[in-house]
Structures are given as structure tokens and as C-alpha cells.
């Protein structure tokens, strides 16, 4: 099964996606990742205001039998988290690139070290 890999996003080796919008970077997990994890039952988001280096564990996404760490793709400060996921963690499954976003960072990083859609597509 091929999973969707939108062109306008950046990706990590560990299956996070990033949408840059000025100095803001919205982060979620890819369609491939949600499919591998199966039904998401719980998300432990980072606290707003928390500062991460790229590669730090920022959140945890859980299915029934797997707990998966979500790494900050770029360095930055958490400016908001998707509180909808508290009630409805399944949004990550149904809309991984949209309503299933996990957190947003304020960052100066422009994501040059991240993968583009083509290279990520090859990875999965």
C-alpha cells in the first residue's frame, strides 16, 4: 500500500512531517507512520513554552500495543499543541497532515537538513 506524501512538506527519517509558515513549524506524523502504528489511542503532547533541540523527544503517540516517541524535527519553542487530540486521537489516523497535527514550534531553522517529499517517498 502506498501512503500519501504531500509535496509541500518536509520530512524526517523518523517519520515526522513539518509545515513551515514563516517562523512557525507545525509538526505531525506521516501517513506511513500512522498506518504502521494503527489506531492511535493516546497522544502525550509537549508543554507549551518548552524548548527543544532538533532530535529531542517532544511527544509520545500510542496505539494499543505501541508507544512511539515523536522527535522535534527542528530546534524551537513550543507555541501551541493540538488539544483536539485529547478527545479524538484518531484524527492522526484519519487526517495525518491536517487535523491530526501534533504541535507547533517557533523556530529559526528553515529545515534545510530535512528530507523533501521525493526523498521521503523513497524511504517508505
Amino acid at each position: 500500500m502506498s501512503s500519501s506524501v504531500p509535496e509541500d512538506l518536509k520530512y524526517t527519517q523518523t517519520h515526522e512531517w513539518v509545515r513551515f509558515n514563516g517562523s512557525k513549524a507545525v509538526v505531525g506524523i506521516t501517513d506511513h507512520a500512522q498506518h504502521e502504528l494503527t489506531d492511535i489511542v493516546f497522544v502525550e503532547p509537549p508543554k507549551t513554552g518548552k524548548i527543544f533541540e532538533a532530535g529531542n523527544v517532544a511527544a509520545v503517540v500510542e496505539s494499543v500495543k505501541v508507544a512511539s516517541d515523536i522527535y522535534a524535527p527542528v530546534s524551537g519553542t513550543v507555541t501551541s499543541v493540538n488539544t483536539e487530540l485529547e478527545k479524538n486521537p484518531g484524527l492522526i489516523n484519519s487526517d495525518p497532515y491536517g487535523k491530526g497535527w501534533i504541535f507547533e514550534l517557533e523556530t529559526t531553522d528553515t529545515g534545510e537538513n530535512l528530507l523533501d517529499a521525493a526523498s521521503y517517498g523513497k524511504l517508505v
Binding site: 493516546f42 500510542e62 496505539s63 494499543v64 500495543k65 505501541v66 508507544a67
Partner: peptide
């Protein structure tokens, strides 16, 4: 809530 447990999260 088994993700708390050792058989899933091992050292964590």
C-alpha cells in the same frame, strides 16, 4: 493502557 508496561515500553 498497556503502553505503560514493560512488555511494550521496555526500559521506558
Amino acid at each position: 493502557l498497556q503502553t505503560r508496561e514493560q512488555h511494550i515500553r521496555r526500559e521506558k
